[in-house]
Design a protein around this nucleic acid. Structure first.
Lengths: 221, 221
DNA sequence: CATTTATTGGCACCGTCTGCCATTAAGCGC
DNA sequence: GCGCTTAATGGCAGACGGTGCCAATAAATG
């Protein structure tokens, strides 16, 4: 009825800004991931994480509904960066080529420590099934972005079966490549490891278009 | 040193057979899924499931490490059946055609109640993130089987990047199709719904081979 | 029946996570 | 500065998830 932000004398303490909230979560997240990597998820209690970050256990649980969701802010940060790159994918370019161009800036945008932490999380998801769920949730968000972009480029509705399948397939490609790199970076991340990721993705994308057996292609004809 | 099974007078009560163990788990699983569907996962306590199945809470927890893993036996049963079909895929046939032939027997092998229960679980995984992890775990096992079969047919090592990517992509296809059917079967499963699944898979497989934008195909040339 | 081993159930206990309330912090007008 | 209002925090009790331990029972052998 009345205007948007008017009619609001706003008395009392204002809520903290959204960015600040994110920063708090991110801080908790970094401590949590460090502890997870050092001693495992099961052996790390919520109390411990809270203490490491200097807040009470109660407020820790207010920030994260489950212990595993601690990894989310860190992962989200990287995935969002990647999504931004995908969204900026120009029509006239191959995805591979676009990634080749945009990949390095993506790496520069994040601190080395965060990159290391993210890869540590990905590695942890191999054995710690509790983290797998969180990991796959944020991957799913990325898949939706991918589907949006694909749909727009193909001129199809977002939920067309072809679009969803393609998005799922490409998402799978990214997953395979990322897992490989995370494993490769088990002991120390170098610039080469990360550049390798780009080429892994390229390889994997090629693998996708090869279509070993799923259809009667030129190979089988 | 000594022979395999000899030298074992085997005194005392013998361990229960593996099949019997599986049957017990399956029984628990059915009760659990029913309760999950009726009142949600969070609102269903381990004690409740145990009581429904007529065992103590303690032995319930001995059968399942986490509450969510209750769904595993049911899902595994279906996935194993599907894997068997994939393994039997003859070289000279298209996958789609093979599935068309083998699909009905697959349905006949399971009770209607179990099929309904499985679809209910898949539907639940949409909203209950706790179940998502369990669901994705058994899907991953299926992906490995797929990779094996693909590797053998293509004459490549099991962990070749192309193989893994293809397996992941096909697995994604199955996931998309299955989710669609589970949604469609929200109110009552009919034979048509299930036959529809086969066609969904076929559609999705076609979608996979279309390759909207991932490479310079005839469309982009 | 006595013996041996596997399963079961009961109990105590730690960690996860929530609801509730008192306390503190951050803004406002005065 | 002082109230006043609202948001964030911390502390506490408690339900639920899940494990270790031990006693009781079940199923085999002789």
């Amino acid at each position: 009825m009345t205007d948007v932000a008017t009619e609001k004398p706003r008395r009392g303490r204002p809520p903290v800004s959204d960015e600040q909230r994110q920063r708090q979560r991110l801080d908790l997240s970094r401590h949590a991931v460090r502890l997870f990597a050092e001693q495992g998820v099961a052996a790390t209690s919520g109390e411990q994480i809270a203490q490491a970050a200097g807040v009470s256990e109660r407020t820790f649980w207010r920030h994260f509904p489950h212990k595993e969701s601690c990894v989310e802010p860190l992962l989200t940060k990287m995935v969002d960066a990647f999504c931004a790159v995908v969204r900026a994918w120009p029509r006239e370019l191959e995805l591979i080529d676009h990634l080749r161009e945009a990949y390095s800036p993506l790496l520069d945008a994040a601190s080395d420590e965060d990159i290391e932490a993210v890869l540590a999380v990905v590695r942890l998801t191999q054995g710690e099934r509790a983290l797998r769920a969180a990991y796959l949730m944020v991957r799913e968000r990325a898949e939706d972005v991918l589907a949006d972009v694909l749909a727009e480029r193909a001129g199809l509705p977002r939920n067309a079966i072809e679009v969803r399948v393609q998005a799922a397939a490409m998402s799978a490609v990214l997953k395979v490549a990322t897992d490989d790199v995370a494993r490769a970076a088990a002991d120390g991340v170098t610039r080469e490891t990360l550049e390798g990721h780009r080429e892994q993705i390229a390889d994997a994308l090629r693998g996708l278009s090869q279509v070993l057996v799923a259809r009667p292609g030129p190979l089988a004809r």
